[in-house]
Design a protein around this nucleic acid. Structure first.
Lengths: 352, 352
DNA sequence: CTGTTAGCGCCTTCAA
DNA sequence: TTGAAGGCGCTAACAG
C-alpha cells in the first residue's frame, strides 16, 4: 500500500462503516450518531486522513470555492497601485468570510501572443470578478461567457445579467469641475487614465478620443463636461502611476501657454503632475492648480495636500464580494453605485 | 436538455466519435487524425463547449494547477508592504509562465477563533508557498503537512525535505554593523521586525528575546552581533510599516540618552524612524544615523537617501516560483540563498 | 440513523 | 488511429 494518500473509502473501511456515512461524519450535512462520527474521526486520525479531497468534492458539487479576480493590467503594475490594492483587500476579506478563495488572474497575458491569460480559459472558478470593468469587445469577458462562468464587474460598462459595482465618478468629477470654475479657472487640462486599448502616454486628438473604451476614463471626462469644463488638452497616461503622471504633467505644463489647472483622473497621476510642476519651478496652486481622484493619503507630497475626489475603496471591494455571494446564491444581478466626495486640499486655488 | 453545460460526452456524441477520441482532440496528448479533430472541434463550437471542465480534469489528474501563496500576516497589511508585493509579483509571473495560478491565502485567519484560515485546510492546491517563512510550531505548516501538500518556504527555518529560498541577511546586516562601527558608533539601537508571536510595538526584554521565533528577525539580529554590535535597545515592531517604525523611533529616540544610530530591519521601519527623528528635531545623520533593510526606492523621504541592505526581491519571487516547479517535477528539495548588498546613502554618518 | 447506488467530467489504460 | 471500460474521490438520493 506504500504511499498513496488515504481516501474516504479507506477511512470508512477502517471504521467499519459505509463511505457515505464517513462522508457525513466530515460534512455534517445529515444526521449521524455521535458515536459513529467519533469512530470515523478516530479511523481518520489513525490513517493520517485530513479531510475530504477538495478535488473530488469539487467535481461532485460542481463548485470549487474559487473566485477568480481579474486585475486590470499586469499584476506587477496593479500591485503598485494602492487603489487596486485597497479594493482587492476589501474583496479578499469579504470573500474569505464566505469561505471563498481568491485566484489572481492577470488582465493582460504574460505571453504577448495570446489574447487572454490561460487561467481565464481553464482555471477552476465559480465566479470571476473583473475589478476594473470591461471593454466593449473584451476577450476576457468573451472567454468567460463562453465558459459559462458568471461574472461580477467593477466599473462599467453595465451589461445585461451582470452585477455591477461602480462609483458616482461622473458626478464627483462634475463637482470638482464646478469647484474649479468657481475659482475662476478657464484653461483646464486633463491627465486621463488609460483609454482601454494599447497603453501610451501621449496627447489625445479627436481620433484617439473616438477610441476611448474604458468606463472610468469616459465617466470622469463626461463629469467635467457636465460642469461646463472643456479641457484645453487631454493627455492619456499609460497607467495610474506617479511616473506616468509626471511625464504627462511635463507634456501639459512645459509649453508656452500652460493651463491654469490640471485635473488628473487618479491621485497617483496627480502626484506626478505635482512633481512635474515642481520640476518646472511652478508654484502650486499659485501658478497651476492640481486635482486628483481617489482620496489616497499621500503624506510624501507634503506640505501639499491634494484636492481630490474621495472614493470608498474598501467598501467597493466589499460590495464586489457581496455581489459574488449574491451571484452564487442565484439572486438577480443588481447594480450598486457608491458615493464619492470632493475633498479640497491645498493644491487648488484661484488662477493668478 | 434545457440548461446543463455540455460535456465532452455531448461533444463526442454530436461528432459521432467516442469520448476518449474527443478528449484527444482537446488535449493533443496522443495521435489523432486532423479530420477527426476538426469534426470534434466543430461539434464543440456548435454546442458552445469551451474545453474540458477543469474540475473533472483535476480529479482525474490529481492536479489542480493552483499554487497557494501564504502571505505572512493579513493580506491588508501585506499589500501595503512593497517588499511583499514585489516578491509576490516575481512569483506570480514565474508561476504564470508555468500555467499555474496563485491562490491568495491569508497567513492569519480572518476569524480570530481559528488557528488557520479555512483555505489552508480545504482549498485545492498542488503546492503551498510560505513567503515569509515558518515558525517553530506553525499551525499552517502542520495543517499542510497533514494534508500532504508539498511546501516551498521563503526565509527560514530550513526544514527537511522542504525547498528554501532565502537571502544572506545575516551576512548583510553584519556588513552594515561593521560599517557603523567603522564610523565610530558605539550606541546602536535596533527596530526589529515582528518576533513571530502576537504582534506588538514595544521594547524587548530578555524574556521576550527568548520567544523570538522568526527567521529574518533573528538572522538580522545575529548579523549585528557578528559585527560586534551589541544593541543598546531593541524595539519590536508590530508590522513592517512606516507608522510602526515611527512609533518605535519615538520609543528609542525620545529618551535622555539616545543611541547614535538606529538600525531598522526594514526600509519602511527605517523611514518611520526617520520621521520620528525629524519630529523630535534631530538631524540625520548628525544627531542620529538611520539604516534600513530591503533596498526600496523611497523618493518621498527626500532629500534623505536611506542607507540600506539591498535584497533582490523580484529574484526571490522568481526563485520561489522555480522551486515550485522543481517540487512539482519531483526533484530533490534545494536551498537557494540570494545575495544582498550594503548600499550607503545619506542617512548614516559619524556620530557627533 | 446507516448503507446502497449512481454518477459528477475527465483521462488513460488496453484492445481492436 | 479509434473505441470501450474503468476509476480518480466524493456526495446526493433513496431505501432500509
Amino acid at each position: 500500500m506504500a504511499h498513496t494518500r488515504p481516501t474516504l473509502a479507506h477511512v470508512a473501511g477502517k471504521a467499519g462503516v459505509s463511505v457515505s456515512t464517513a462522508s457525513l461524519a466530515f460534512s455534517g450535512a445529515g444526521p449521524i450518531a455521535a458515536e459513529t462520527r467519533a469512530k470515523v474521526l478516530a479511523a481518520a486520525r489513525e490513517l493520517g486522513y485530513s479531510g475530504p479531497n477538495p478535488l473530488g468534492r469539487s467535481l461532485r458539487s460542481g463548485r470549487s470555492g474559487i473566485v477568480a479576480v481579474v486585475i486590470g493590467d499586469q499584476l506587477r503594475r496593479s500591485f503598485r497601485d494602492p487603489v487596486s490594492v485597497r479594493v482587492l483587500d476589501g474583496l479578499v476579506s469579504t470573500l474569505g468570510q464566505l469561505g471563498l478563495g481568491v485566484l489572481l488572474v492577470p488582465g493582460l497575458p504574460v505571453e504577448e501572443d495570446r489574447a487572454v491569460d490561460p487561467l481565464v480559459e481553464s482555471a477552476p472558478m465559480d465566479v470571476a470578478v473583473l475589478i476594473w470593468g470591461s471593454r466593449t469587445q473584451d476577450p476576457i469577458r468573451e472567454a468567460l461567457q463562453r465558459r459559462g462562468v458568471p461574472m461580477v464587474i467593477g466599473e462599467g460598462p453595465s451589461l445585461p445579467d451582470v452585477p455591477l459595482v461602480g462609483i458616482h465618478d461622473r458626478r464627483g468629477t462634475a463637482e470638482l469641475g464646478a469647484y474649479l470654475r468657481s475659482l475662476g479657472h478657464e484653461r483646464v487640462a486633463v491627465v486621463a487614465l488609460p483609454f482601454g486599448g494599447p497603453r501610451r502616454c501621449a496627447v489625445v486628438d479627436a481620433d484617439r478620443m473616438g477610441e476611448l473604451d474604458w468606463a472610468p476614463t469616459r465617466n470622469r471626462l463626461q463629469g467635467l463636461a457636465d460642469a461646463g469644463v472643456a479641457p484645453t488638452a487631454v493627455v492619456e497616461a499609460g497607467a495610474s502611476l506617479v511616473e506616468e503622471g509626471q511625464a504627462a504633467g511635463r507634456l501639459l505644463l512645459d509649453v508656452d501657454d500652460p493651463p491654469t489647472a490640471v485635473v488628473a483622473q487618479s491621485d497617483l497621476l496627480a502626484a506626478g503632475v505635482l512633481l512635474a510642476a515642481r520640476d518646472l519651478g511652478l508654484r502650486v496652486p499659485q501658478d497651476v492648480s492640481v486635482a486628483g481622484f481617489d482620496g489616497l493619503d499621500l503624506p510624501w507630497i507634503a506640505p501639499d495636500v491634494l484636492t481630490t475626489v474621495d472614493q470608498p475603496l474598501a467598501a467597493k471591494g466589499q460590495a464586489l464580494g457581496e455581489a459574488v455571494a449574491a451571484v452564487l446564491a442565484g439572486e438577480e444581478p443588481q447594480t450598486v453605485t457608491l458615493d464619492v466626495t470632493l475633498r479640497v486640499g491645498t493644491t487648488t486655488g484661484p488662477p493668478r
